[in-house]
Structure formats: structure tokens, C-alpha cells
Design a protein around this nucleic acid. Structure first.
Length: 506
RNA sequence: GCCGCGUUCGUCUAAGGGCUAGGACACCACCCUUUCACGGUGGUGAUACGGGUUCGAAUCCCGUACGCGGUACCA
């Protein structure tokens, strides 16, 4: 019997969602959709001290912008709820107690000071981070070292305690990773991880296993940083629900920054976003830039992220979300980490701006223009301009620089590039051209250009020496699309106005 | 330190025993364009190192180096 495909992502609401997190969501989502399954989002709010208000909402916003909405989540519910770990608190204790009863876990009463003391005592240069493991287990205060009556007394008195897993000695735990193949660990080198914290909350280790079981998760994809604790999870599955019921694992490679693991600092340091959307930490007021606000399209963002660690074996690089759903394969995800390259990310965005019809982003651009203080009345004029300049824009924010002159006539024009070679014949040429403009019946770029050339020839002037002045008069600088196309869009009246203005300044 | 996972142009990657190691980004040159871009053509540029196995190795095996991750009552 094959289980229905159900994959999950479980972020902790302790800050924004970094690139690696969004990519994990993406791969989970793609795999689920590809198999007609469900993508489940649950919230790991088990660490009260690091919980950041607003972070959960931010996660939802990010997923929404990316178009990766979960089928089940704290927000839209589902029959396996609740989807917040803090609301499932009662569940975990039960399983932890079961493990204690089975002799595979134990109560530990050691205080923070006692743990510090143990670590300080054992710390050497050879062993810089001593663990709570089989070597020290019998020297600590726990239900293995204390008499049963004492343990019962401590428990009855509500003495703060944790439940730790008892790692077996010299056992090899092996499992199959969909990306890495067979991976094995010696249980002797992993410590007695805390399963249930003193505040009654589970640690990730317990929660992930219990929730994956209760929510009938079939596949679990997560970052590579979880690989070392996988043996704990395997053992928990074996003890609690049977290893054969365990989801299939895949540990995704890390996304790296210019120097090592990609961090928020890298973004600030090198000037590129590391989050999907702007995130302001309410505690520190620190802002981390987002791709959205930088002018990225979600299509490009998703595409770029998908290719950072996966490819389908062909030379295709541009994929829509639907294509990704079809072509994605977890087996083809790379083993090695990938360094994030902002230049390449921008290239993806450029491609998507060119590829997509302007309808899919014109509202975003409009918003940016309104922010610049512009009032847009003529929708078709606006659309015409977007179509004309879209190929030159890498980010949505580039649209302004490439088209503001269609809306704002240049005032003080810098004519230095042409001033030295200016003479009266040119002034009279433009006078004639204005007259001609008034007479042209169909105001199209080609006609305007033909007329311009004809007049130049009659005046025995070089066309090349006249085009730059015209451009300067129309847009105010050496930039923009072909001049006659600008004139066509500007229209007869505005074009003539701008030429007259320019002439007056010369 | 210990444990684990990795390693192909600067970057993302293709090639999973067999043609001059292919593509993309970036960079450079040329073309197009009498603006700036877009675009087009071409170019520089890589199998970490050392041993095996094999007629033949980027590919399989071993070792070394390097990188990354973990080593918390964080996830």
C-alpha cells in the first residue's frame, strides 16, 4: 500500500524566511503537487524565548507572494490540526512518557548550572564541546542514577526536569536519503538529546517525529543542517511508530553566500536581498531587504531559486511554476551547496520581464510610479510605454528610469554634447520640421523619420548631427528608446512643444 | 577535537567508463544601433591533489587537502 503524498515545511517564527527556507518550501511544494499530494505548513513555535511576533504572518505573506500556498496550515486549517506546535503541547508529553516507560528515554533533573559545571569540567582542547551522552549519563542527576523513590518524589514535587533520549551504545543507524543515498551513523557519538523541555514544550526532535506521524507525512525534505540529528529521529520512529512507517527523507544542500553560509549580514554587506520580502525585526527594528521590494517578479524568484541546486539535465533554464511541477525530481537535486549569485538572479528577472505580458506586473509598476508622485490617467498610454521599454528593464524599479520622460517633459536641458556644433541652419531646420509635423496625417515613427531625413537632405545637413539634438529636446538626455518611437508615443502636440522648448533654450 | 556531508570554468551547472569536458551568468572583442540599452556572433576560462582498478576515468575504489554543517532545555 502506498500512502498519499504529504510533505511538510515547518518554519520557526523567529525571524524572516531566508532563501534556503523558501527553496525548501519550493521543493516540498513541487514534489507534493507533482504527485497530486498535499503541502502542509506547520509552525514550530516551541521556542518561546525566541518567538517573534509578526513572523508567522510574514511567513504566510511570503508563501502567498511566491504562489506556494499550503493545503493545510494554521491559517486555512485542515483535518490534522492544530498546526501550531504550541497548540499541540499535550500530545508530546504522552509519547515522551511512553519512551521513558519503554526504557528508551529518561527524566533528567540537572539544572543549567549543573550542566555548565559538567561541560566546564570535561572541556579540553581535544574535546571542546562535551556532550550529555553515555559517558557522563551515570554521573548526572537523572532517573538512571537516582533511586526510584527519589525520582518519584521529585516528579511529585513538580521539580523542573527534561526527558532525554537514551542513545544506545555502538549501534549503527542507517537510512536512505533520496538525494544522498545510504547514510549511516554510529549511535555512540551522538548525545542524549533533550526530547521534552522543562517548560513542557517538545524540542524539534520529538515534535517532528510525532507530528509527521500524526499528520501522516510521507516525505520529509529539509536542510542539510539536520543530517547530523537524523539518527535521533530514526531511533524515535523505531521506538514509537516503527521504522517502516517513517517518511522518506531528503536533505537539501545549503545555499551559500560570498563567504560561507548565506546570512542576513551578507545581504547588507554586498547589497542584495536575502529574504523574499522585506522583513523588519520588531525587536531590533532592523530591516532585511526582500526580493519583492527590490523589483523582482515572483515567477523569476521561484525560477532562480529552483535552479539553485537542481536542474533537469537539459539546458533549459527558464521554467514556469507549472513546468517545474512537471519536471522537478528530487533525485536530481544536487548534493553540494550552491553559492548564491545576485547577477544571475537579476538575469532571471530580466528574462521574466521580457517573457511575461505586461498585464502580470503593470499594477506593481503603476504603484512605483505613483510613489514617484505621478498621476496616471491614460491607461493605454501607460501600457504602450511599458511594452516599449520592458526589454530594457532588469528590475521593476528600472521602469521609472527608462520611461519617466514620457510623463515629465524635460525642463533645463544640458545641451553641452551638441552646443559646440550648433549653428543657425540647424535652428531653422527644426523650425521647418515643426511645420512638417503639423502637416503629417499619420503620426507614426516611420513617417516622422522619413520626413526628418527628407528635410535634412534638403537643408544639406547630416541626419546624424540632428538626431541627438532632437533626442535631447524630447527626453533631456542621451538615453531612451529610438527617438522617432518616442515622438510617436508623445504625440504631435507634446513633441512640438518639447522641440520649441529646446530651441528656446539653445 | 569528534561526527557527518560535500568538491567540474570566478559563479550556477551538463556529461553517471569512451568523440576537441557542453550550456548559462559575469567578463572581453566584434556586429547591430548616429542615444542608452536589448539583441547577435565569437573569445578567455574548470574536472582539488596523490595513488590505484581499466584498453580507456570528471565518472568506480583508497588516501590527503580544502569547504560546509552538527556537536544547546535553537530550530
Amino acid at each position: 500500500m502506498t500512502k498519499r503524498v504529504r510533505v511538510r515545511f515547518a518554519p520557526s517564527p523567529t525571524g524572516g524566511l531566508h532563501l534556503g527556507g523558501v527553496r525548501t518550501v519550493l521543493y516540498n511544494y513541487l514534489f507534493a503537487k507533482q504527485h497530486g499530494g498535499d503541502f502542509i505548513l506547520r509552525i514550530e513555535d516551541t521556542d518561546q524565548s525566541r518567538y517573534v511576533p509578526g513572523a508567522e504572518e510574514y511567513i504566510f505573506n511570503t508563501l502567498q507572494w511566491c504562489g506556494l500556498e499550503p493545503d493545510e496550515s494554521p491559517k486555512n486549517g485542515g483535518k490534522y490540526g492544530p498546526y501550531r506546535q504550541s497548540e499541540r503541547k499535550e500530545q508530546y508529553r504522552k509519547y515522551a512518557e511512553q519512551l521513558v516507560a519503554q526504557g528508551q528515554a529518561y527524566y533528567a533533573f540537572d539544572t543549567a548550572e549543573e550542566l555548565d559545571a559538567m561541560r566546564n569540567r570535561l572541556r579540553t582542547t581535544e574535546n571542546p564541546s562535551p556532550q550529555y551522552d553515555r559517558t557522563v549519563r551515570m554521573q548526572m542527576r537523572n532517573s538512571f542514577t537516582l533511586a526510584k523513590e527519589e525520582v518519584d518524589g521529585l516528579l511529585a514535587a513538580n521539580t523542573p526536569h527534561v526527558i532525554r533520549i537514551k542513545m544506545p551504545e555502538h549501534e549503527t543507524v542507517q537510512f536512505h536519503d533520496m538525494i544522498r543515498g545510504d547514510v549511516s551513523f554510529d549511535t555512540s557519538v551522538v548525545d542524549d538529546k533533550v526530547l521534552l523541555k522543562a517548560d513542557g514544550m517538545p524540542t524539534y526532535h520529538l515534535a517532528v517525529v510525532v507530528d509527521d506521524h500524526l499528520m501522516e507525512i510521507s516525505h520529509a525534505f529539509r536542510g542539510e543542517e539536520w543530517l547530523p540529528s537524523a539518527p535521533v529521529h530514526i531511533l524515535l520512529w523505531r521506538y514509537l511508530f516503527g521504522e517502516e512507517a517513517m517518511p522518506q527523507w531528503a536533505h537539501l544542500p545549503l545555499i551559500l553566500g560570498p563567504s560561507g553560509k548565506l546570512s542576513k549580514r551578507d545581504g547588507a554587506k554586498y547589497g542584495f536581498p536575502v529574504f523574499a520580502m522585506n522583513w523588519t525585526d520588531p525587536k531590533t527594528s532592523e530591516l532585511t531587504d526582500g526580493f519583492k521590494e527590490k523589483g523582482f517578479l515572483p515567477e523569476a524568484f521561484i525560477n532562480m531559486l529552483a535552479m539553485l541546486g537542481w536542474n533537469d539535465g537539459t539546458e533549459q533554464e527558464l521554467f514556469s511554476k507549472d513546468e517545474l511541477v512537471q519536471r522537478f525530481s528530487i533525485e536530481k537535486v544536487h548534493k553540494g551547496g550552491a553559492k548564491f549569485d545576485y547577477e544571475k538572479a537579476k538575469w532571471f528577472n530580466h528574462e521574466w520581464i521580457k517573457k511575461l505580458p505586461i498585464d502580470s506586473y503593470k499594477e506593481e509598476v503603476k504603484k512605483l510610479f505613483v510613489e514617484k508622485g505621478l498621476q496616471l490617467q491614460d491607461e493605454s498610454y501607460f501600457e504602450k510605454i511599458l511594452s516599449l521599454v520592458k526589454d530594457r528593464c532588469t528590475l521593476l524599479s528600472d521602469f521609472w528610469a527608462h520611461s519617466f520622460f514620457f510623463f515629465i517633459a524635460p525642463k533645463e536641458i544640458d545641451f553641452t554634447p551638441i552646443k559646440a556644433k550648433w549653428f543657425d541652419e540647424k535652428t531653422s531646420f527644426f523650425g521647418l520640421y515643426i511645420k512638417a509635423l503639423n502637416g503629417i496625417s499619420d503620426f507614426k515613427a516611420a513617417t516622422l523619420e522619413a520626413e526628418f531625413k527628407k528635410l535634412a537632405e534638403e537643408a544639406t545637413l547630416k541626419v546624424g548631427e540632428l538626431q541627438l539634438p532632437l533626442r535631447l529636446m524630447l527626453v533631456g538626455g542621451k538615453f531612451g528608446p529610438p527617438v522617432f518611437e518616442i515622438a510617436e508615443i508623445l504625440g504631435r502636440e507634446e513633441t512640438i512643444n518639447r522641440i520649441e522648448n529646446g530651441l528656446a533654450q539653445l
